[in-house]
Nucleic acid binder design. Structure first.
Length: 286
DNA sequence: ATGGTCGGTGTCCGA
């Protein structure tokens, strides 16, 4: 434990990560390794696939992450916020009235509102008439846009992370042309995501640091045995911030090596460092 | 060229 010297600069680094873990019980040791190696202050997980009573808290507490917010269900979905900073006002919302565990929100020190989302993947057929899962995905994104579009005090400090299951930019997929009709990169999804970003005035923190045309992926399918050589990835996992936090964006990393670990998830963690101003006792502006 | 592989719980579903 190191004691940070008081800085006149008036900023405090906040390291925030998101990772679709695809079963937290199977990969709890990988979670601990990511925490110890990259030292995020907060790690948001999706697809934990475990009910709250069976969530593996102890190994996380043992490596210094004692603030754990969870919302899980059997077999599918499930989200968690794992933090070494205090979490306040933890809450969840039921999107599309399905009772799915796809969202958790909490407040971080300094009055920062954090949202962790697992957006539905959407199935295979990119047509809401033929495919209920795709219809659900579109409705979910619409509901998010409506939620973040209402009022939303423009000055508030907010972070939205998660597996949004959309790769919005041409440089977010291995082939824009090949994926135009593949769920995750269809024009209708990309347009809805743009609507959501605009409604909440969200800023894509990773692309502030690594702009197009540099290709960036956070997911590589299990179905490709040579995922690294083929490199047919997509950037499905995102870290967004509200305008007051945009000047704080200092660093962004997609932890690609994690995809090569034993028993890997098909997603890798995305990590962003914000140098958050702490003037005026760290509170958000009114 | 329209496959392929995962995880959790089963003998399939969702990704």
């Amino acid at each position: 434990m190191t004691i940070r010297p008081k800085k006149n600069a008036g900023t405090r680094p906040l390291r925030i990560a998101t990772w679709n873990i695809n079963s937290v019980r199977l990969r709890i040791e990988l979670v601990c390794r990511v925490l110890q190696t990259w030292q995020p202050d907060v790690l948001c997980l999706q697809e934990t696939k475990v009910v709250d009573g069976d969530f593996p808290r102890a190994p996380l507490e043992a490596v210094g992450y004692g603030e754990i917010a969870i919302r899980g269900q059997k077999s599918y979905n499930g989200v968690a916020i794992i933090s070494r900073l205090p979490l306040a006002n933890v809450r969840a919302q039921d999107w599309c009235g399905k009772g799915d565990c796809r969202h958790l929100a909490a407040e971080l020190p300094g009055g920062i509102e954090l949202h962790n989302f697992y957006v539905p993947a959407g199935g295979d057929i990119p047509d809401p008439e033929q495919n209920d899962k795709f219809a659900h995905k579109l409705a979910f994104l619409q509901e998010m846009a409506a939620f973040f579009g209402q009022d939303r005090q423009a000055a508030a400090r907010r972070i939205l992370v998660g597996d949004l299951n959309v790769a919005p930019l041409e440089a977010d997929v291995w082939s824009h042309k090949a994926l135009l009709k593949v769920v995750s990169h269809t024009p209708v999804e990309v347009a809805l995501m743009a609507e959501l970003a605009s409604a909440g005035q969200w800023i894509d923190a990773v692309r502030r640091i690594v702009p197009e045309p540099t290709r960036l992926y956070s997911w590589w399918s299990y179905r490709s045995p040579n995922w690294e050589a083929a490199d047919k990835g997509r950037r499905l996992d995102h870290v967004w911030v509200s305008p007051p936090l945009a000047p704080a964006i200092a660093q962004a990393e997609i932890l690609k090596p994690v995809r090569g670990w034993e028993v890997a998830s098909d997603h890798v963690p995305v990590l962003v460092t914000l140098n958050v101003p702490v003037e005026a006792s760290g509170d958000a502006p009114a």
